[in-house]
Design a protein around this nucleic acid. Structure first.
Lengths: 330, 330
DNA sequence: CTGTTAGCGCGTTCAT
DNA sequence: ATGAACGCGCTAACAG
C-alpha cells in the first residue's frame, strides 16, 4: 500500500552474485581502480542481470558533491519566478543537462534587496552541487560567498570570481541598430531594461555607440522587460521625441507592447515607426506585424552554464552569437 | 583553489557547542522526540549561531527518500524536450514547489515507442523521490512499474494507479465551441492533436458533443500542437470543407499557424473564418488578430502534481478550471 | 589485482 | 530526557 516494496538491489547484492567484494564492484563499475578482466565481466553481468543502479544519494554523501544544481534568480518578488518564461527555459535546459549526472535542479529566489542571507544559506547547504545565477546584479556578485567560488556561474553578468555565460548582447544590439539605420531610420529610441541590471547595460552601451557613430541623437528610456513597459515606453518616447521613427526594444515582449501602444496612438508599424525586439520568441513570427528581432539561444546558454559547473571549467567569459531575424516590423 | 574550503558545520559541531549529544540535537531540530526545554534552547541557539543546516543528502540516505523529482516526458525524440515551452513551464513550477523540501527536479525523456526500460530504470533509481508524467500515453500508463505506484502522478491522462492532474479540457472545449456557436458560426472544423494521445481526446469528445447537440456536422482533423500543424490543418480544412466559417484549434500555436495560412489563402480572420486557440500563452494577446482562447494554468497544475507526490495525496483526479478569453480572432 | 576496514552525516533504536 | 551504538549505500585508504 505504500508503494514501498523496494527490493532495492544494492552493491552488496551485486557483489554476492558476482562472488567478489563490494569494493571490487565499485571499482569495476566506476572504473576508478584496477580490476581483472574476469572479475569485471562477472560484475558487469551480475549488475546487468539484477538491474543494479548505484544510489546517487550514497555516492553524493561520500563525495560531498551535492545532489542538485540551484538556479538562483534575483528579482523583486518571488512571484516573478513562477511565470517568467525565461526562467522556465533556463531551468528546463539545466535539468536536461544535469540528468545524465544524476543531479536534480532547484529553483531559488534571491531577493533583490537582500540576497546575502540566501546566498550564504546556499553556500552552506551541502546538497547544493553548484549555483547558476540568473538576472545577476552587482550586489549579488559581490555577495557570492568564498565557499561557492568554483561552484558558481552566472547568466548575464560575471565578475573575476564568477564565470559569465550569455548571449553576445553587444553584437546583437549593434546588428539590430545597424539594421534600423540601413533601412533609413534616423530617430531611434531605445526601450531599455532596468538601469541596475548589469546584463541590461551591454546592449544599451552598444546601441548608444552605434547611434553616436552615425551622428544621431541617443535616446534611451528605462523599462523592465515587460509588455507593459513597452506600452509605457512607446507613449513616453513619442511624447518626448515626436519625430521618433524607430523603437529598439530590449526584448520581444517589450517590443510587442510598444507595437500595441503605437497602433493605439494611430501610428503604423513599420511605416511610421519601425520596431525591433530581441529573443526571437516562438510566437514572434505571429505577431501583427511579424516581429523583426534577433535570436537568443537561452537553452544553449543554460546548458553551457550548467556544464561548466559540472566540468569545473574555468572559462571566464562565454558569449553565444545572436542572429538577426528580419520580418515585418522593421 | 578548489573552492573546497568547507568548514561544513555538521551536527557534531552543534552538539559539542551545546554540550549535548548528536542524538539530542537531532531530536530537537527535527522535533522527532522528547527534549528538555533547556537543552532545546541551547541546541537551537548553537545551531543558529553556527549557521547549521542539516545535510539533505545524509538525511535522504537514512530515510531512503530520494533527492529528486523526475519530470518524465513522452515524445518521439529527445530534442522536442529542449525547446518545448510547455515542458519548461512544468519543470520550472515543479522546481519551485520542490525547493522547500530540498528536492531537485530532473527532466527525463521517455521514448514514445519504447518507454518501458526507462520507466523501469526510474523505478530502480533510489534517488528518485517521485515521477511526474507529462504527455502520457496509454502505453506509458500500462508500463508504470509497481514500485513506482504511490510515487507517480500524471499530467494529461491517468489510470487506476496513476493520479491525474490537468486542466479541465472538456469544459474548456465546450466553452470555446459554445462561444463560436453563439457568435453565429455553423461550419466549425477542429484542428485536433495526435489521436494516440489520451489527453488530446477529451477536448475532441467535448467539441464533437457540442457540435452534434447543435445539429451541426462534426469535422475533425488530426494534428500535433505545432504551428506548422495549424497551417496544414487550415489548408486541409478549407479544401475538404470550403464553407468552413470557424477553426477550433487544440492550442494557441496551432491556432496562430492556422491564422497565418488562412491569410495566405486570402481569408479574413475573423470576418470569413473565426479562429480560437487554447493555452492563452503570454503572447496570444499580441498576435494579429489578437487570439481568442482559454486559459491553461500549467504552473498550478505542475505544482499540484508535484505537491500530491510529496504529500502522498491519493486523489485520483484533479481538474483545474479554464477561463474563456475573448479577443479578436473569434 | 583483491578483500578488509573505516568513515561520509544523519536518524534511530536501545539502554540508561 | 539523554547518550552510546548501529546502519543507510557507497567509495577511499590500506594491507595482502
Amino acid at each position: 500500500m505504500h508503494g514501498d516494496d523496494r527490493p532495492a538491489v544494492t552493491i552488496e547484492h551485486v557483489a554476492r552474485a558476482a562472488g567478489v567484494s563490494r569494493a571490487t564492484v565499485s571499482r569495476v563499475l566506476t572504473g576508478s581502480g584496477p580490476s581483472s578482466a574476469d572479475a569485471g565481466q562477472r560484475v558487469r553481468a551480475a549488475a546487468e542481470r539484477l538491474g543494479y543502479t548505484a544510489d546517487p544519494v550514497a555516492r553524493a554523501l561520500v563525495h560531498g558533491r551535492g545532489t542538485r544544481l540551484v538556479v538562483a534568480v534575483t528579482s523583486a518578488s518571488p512571484t516573478e519566478l513562477v511565470d517568467c518564461p525565461y526562467v522556465s527555459r533556463v531551468v528546463g535546459s539545466t535539468a536536461q543537462r544535469c540528468a545524465s549526472e544524476g543531479l536534480g535542479v532547484a529553483l531559488q529566489w534571491l531577493p533583490l534587496d537582500a540576497p546575502e542571507p540566501t546566498l550564504d544559506a546556499l553556500a552552506r547547504d551541502r546538497s547544493v552541487a553548484g549555483v547558476v545565477l540568473v538576472n545577476t546584479t552587482r550586489r549579488v556578485l559581490d555577495a557570492v560567498p568564498p565557499r561557492l567560488v568554483g561552484r558558481v556561474a552566472s547568466i548575464g553578468a560575471g565578475s573575476p570570481t564568477v564565470p559569465l555565460v550569455d548571449v553576445d548582447t553587444s553584437a546583437a544590439a549593434a546588428a539590430l541598430t545597424a539594421h534600423l539605420l540601413s533601412t533609413g531610420r534616423r530617430r531611434i529610441a531605445m526601450l531599455a531594461g532596468p538601469p541596475w541590471l548589469p546584463c541590461a547595460e551591454r546592449p544599451v552601451t552598444a546601441h548608444r555607440a552605434a547611434v553616436r557613430a552615425a551622428g544621431l541623437p541617443e535616446r534611451v528610456l528605462a523599462g523592465d522587460f515587460t509588455a507593459e513597459s513597452g506600452r509605457r515606453g512607446a507613449v513616453e518616447a513619442l511624447r518626448r521625441w515626436p519625430d521618433t521613427d524607430a523603437l529598439y526594444a530590449i526584448c520581444d515582449e517589450t517590443a510587442l507592447g510598444a507595437i500595441q501602444a503605437l497602433r493605439a496612438l494611430g501610428r503604423r508599424v513599420p511605416e511610421d515607426v519601425a520596431v525591433t525586439g530581441f529573443d526571437d520568441l516562438p510566437l514572434a513570427a505571429f505577431s501583427g506585424p511579424a516581429l523583426t528581432t534577433a535570436t537568443h539561444p537561452v537553452e544553449q546558454i543554460a546548458a553551457r552554464a550548467a556544464g561548466s559547473l559540472l566540468d569545473r571549467d574555468r572559462t571566464t567569459v562565454t558569449l553565444f552569437p545572436s542572429e538577426l531575424v528580419v520580418r515585418q516590423s522593421a
